[in-house]
Write a protein that binds this DNA or RNA. Structure first.
Lengths: 189, 189
DNA sequence: CGGCATCTTCAGAAGATTCTGAAACTTCCG
DNA sequence: CGGAAGTTTCAGAATCTTCTGAAGATGCCG
């Protein structure tokens, strides 16, 4: 960010970028929080994305007006998600952070992580629940009730397993890639 | 729910179903809240799904141990989402509620609603933001900075628009249906 | 119309989540 | 080793979300 080396006329240009960045960060934070992702975590990620260059903790704090503690914790969470990496600059003891600039890779990582955290666990639970009621005899009234109940569980299980399986193929690191999935879908008449 | 008319031996069967239902409702509520959906709203929906038959307000309150107010508000939200419908029973002034039993239709509705509420608005915001910085000349240092910034916004916009467009085709009421999308994807070698 | 059954609303309470700030820790350097 | 720069942690504070309960609305029926 070479602000001092710019002529005065370009300061206003810088302001436009800055405002654009701020708005982007805001919009992103708002959306993320409606998807159950902590707002500041998403805002930091948006800031790193939209700035492009590595940013350090103090810059994040200043831009987003958040505490050092929050910044540190959120950055760690982003690193755990695999979305952000640490960068070191020569002659600067501060740590800098940057994020993937390829949007496809970014979303692939996000989807993979959400699958791991929110889909896989519920599959485990649903299987446990399904095992409670085994196979039902349809000869009695009660047996038919259990059979109907099992059918509902099985329908749900089958659906989620299908989503899980497709996700596995398209978002796992060794998978075919999100872009291919999108291409396939867009070809359907 | 014919509990009184059943022989004693079937009560224990009923207990198994009941426990299974409770666990299902719990698991579902937990998952939903990690996706930014109010827990009780999801729990009510899960209860209606897993019970199959229409359920009235008092039964919901009793099963989930929640207040009448909460039940009423959450049911209204579910109706607004298009996930639940009111049913009237002859000779009973109470209102009953039921939900779609076809899991594919269910998720189609959920996806459609989320797109409308969370994807479409951010597309509007991103377009507004993008319009702030127009087309950049790459002849100056500042111009190049704006161009790089615009490229980032455009990448993001392009990605989200693609997702939006595909969603439109597969989840809209007149669309080709979720099932077709899944079939296409599963065919990729 | 009066009275009863049911449903809705919303202000404030309860609960959950996120954020802060200061202390503790780590690392680097002379 | 001493200490400065930078980072992490976490208990409590602030904030945001969700839930309750009671008052009021609605509507049905004799």
């Amino acid at each position: 960010m070479p602000t001092e080396t710019q002529p005065a006329s370009e300061d206003s240009q810088g302001d436009v970028i800055r405002e654009s960045q701020d708005r982007f960060v805001n919009a992103w934070g708002k959306m993320a929080s409606s998807w159950g992702i902590p707002r500041t975590m998403a805002e930091i990620h948006a800031l790193l994305y939209i700035c492009g260059d590595p940013v350090n903790t103090d810059e994040v704090m200043e831009r987003l007006q958040i505490s050092r503690g929050n910044t540190s914790m959120s950055l760690r969470a982003l690193i755990d998600w695999g979305l952000v990496s640490r960068v070191h600059k020569r002659g600067d003891r501060k740590e800098y952070f940057e994020t993937e600039q390829d949007v496809w890779k970014l979303f692939r990582t996000i989807l993979r992580e959400r699958k791991k955290r929110e889909i896989d666990p519920i599959l485990v639970s649903l299987h446990e629940i399904r095992d409670l009621t085994g196979r039902a005899e349809v000869s009695s009234e009660a047996g038919r009730a259990i059979a109907a109940h099992n059918r509902r569980l099985d329908d749900m299980l089958e659906f989620i397993e299908m989503v899980d399986g497709l996700a596995e193929r398209f978002i796992s690191p060794q998978g075919r890639g999100l872009k291919l999935a999108a291409k396939m879908l867009s070809k359907v008449s």
